[in-house]
């Protein structure tokens, strides 16, 4: 997956978790938490969805690395390079 694929994937997963999320004007450099008003339980669901789809295990201590769309891409790129 390319970085663009990964950010699309994250947006798709969030849209599935929260059907009211509004992705207009989403800044890939700014925290998803603030822009989409997500909480730790929502983040858990993003992580779980990634595990379910791609068998990626993300430990709790790495959750901060998923803070922004860009940081998601950076963190997940090596894990999803063969997908």
């Amino acid at each position: 997956m390319t970085r663009a694929d990964i950010t699309d994937l994250i947006v798709e997963i969030i849209a599935d978790i929260d059907d009211e999320a509004d992705f207009d004007n989403l800044d890939p450099e700014k925290p998803l938490r603030d822009q989409l008003d997500l909480d730790s339980m929502d983040f858990l669901d993003i992580v779980m969805e990634l595990r379910k789809r791609y068998k990626i295990q993300i430990p709790e201590e790495d959750y901060p690395q998923l803070a922004t769309l860009n940081s998601c891409a950076t963190y997940l790129e090596p894990m999803l390079k063969d997908v």
Binding site: L44, R51, Q57, P59, E60, E61, M79
Partner: peptide, 15 residues
């Protein structure tokens, strides 16, 4: 969530 979903183990691994 706390006991069966969150992975409390450090260091990333692949299943």
């Amino acid at each position: 969530n706390n006991h069966l979903l969150i992975n409390h183990q450090p260091s990333p691994t692949r299943e």
